[in-house]
Design a protein around this nucleic acid. Structure first.
Length: 210
DNA sequence: ATCCCGAGGG
DNA sequence: CCCTCTGGAT
């Protein structure tokens, strides 16, 4: 996609949603980190339903560390992959207390050293909690990047590098959310709603759903 | 490449 | 029924 089209692409998304934010519910950086770990291969609605009770009863790393794996599992057993996530979130809470005084670290290496935290989760936390211009490539962004021709790539790493290269600096801070929302509500995996797509005319998809 | 795995939608 | 959902560790 030409630089001119890329700029138009994000100008329209920005005009429609000037201050996009995560649809995950959280009150602190720690809660954001936990919510993002839980959101792997799960919908944010499902995550919010579970974390509402969890964060009400156990809002801090101290509380979740004390809750333990089995206790945590009772709160999150409606979310896919929950046994692994319960282990990771308890271990992660303990590590935060041991290494970082219970705070969420600001740097990528320390984040990715936490169990259950990979590049995508670290990118989300760095962007949302610490306002760094990272672009976390998830299932939506990988699909949208390839379909539209904005950032084609066979791996998430390739798509991320491409996005960091082509997205103008002024749009980079919010690019993650704009692309997610486009993928979630319009450029859907199964039946893309091309008729209502704000960037329909800029899109390279050869199988437009009209 | 494969495993982890529940809810919702079509 | 099958596919998808803000992936990560082995």
């Amino acid at each position: 996609m030409s630089p001119k089209k890329v700029r138009e692409f994000f100008s329209r998304l920005a005009a429609a949603n000037p201050e996009p934010k995560s649809e995950l519910e959280y009150a602190t950086p720690f809660q954001l980190l936990v919510a993002v770990v839980l959101s792997a291969q799960a919908t944010d609605k499902g995550v919010n339903r579970a974390t509402r009770a969890l964060f009400r009863d156990h809002p801090t790393p101290q509380a979740i560390a004390a809750l333990g794996v089995e206790g945590l599992a009772e709160y999150i057993n409606t979310i896919g992959l929950y046994p692994t996530k319960a282990k990771n979130v308890v271990a992660l809470s303990r590590l935060l207390l041991e290494r970082h005084g219970g705070d969420v670290p600001h740097d990528r290496a320390a984040l990715e050293a936490l169990p259950g935290v990979g590049r995508k989760t670290a990118n989300v936390v760095l962007n949302i909690a610490f306002h760094e211009p990272t672009i976390a490539v998830d299932t939506h962004i990988f699909r949208v990047g390839n379909r539209t021709g904005l950032a084609p790539g066979s791996t998430v790493e390739a798509v991320e590098q491409k996005l960091l290269k082509v997205v103008p600096a002024e749009f980079r801070l919010h690019a993650h959310h704009w692309l997610i929302l486009l993928g979630r509500y319009t450029c859907k995996a199964r039946s893309p709603d091309c008729v209502h797509c704000p960037v329909f005319d800029l899109c390279a998809c050869k199988e437009k759903n009209v």
